[in-house]
Amino acid sequence: MTVAAALTFIRRARADPAIRAALECASEAAATGAICAIGADHGLAFSESDFDRAFAIEWTARWAHFGNPDTTIDKGGKGK
């Protein structure tokens, strides 16, 4: 159960047809647990908090690579 596994899952989700098909079937009301279950089905074990952490890391890394340095993202709170 690691953040690294969740990161791998997120990256594979962009290319792996089986994972994508499973995600597309996940209902919009599904909890993060459903994503964890899909990950487990594909040999990637991570918890909900692992996924949340990995999702933020992956977003930040992509922004550093593809983001426009002129685009200002304003702050909107810290969450719960």
Partner: peptide, 20 residues
């Protein structure tokens, strides 16, 4: 608000949409 500055869980439907 982006996942980078949000300490809570990102909504599942948004997370799934982002991965797809």
């Amino acid at each position: 608000i982006t996942p980078a500055g949000w300490t809570g869980a990102w909504p599942t439907d948004m997370a799934v949409g982002a991965m797809l």
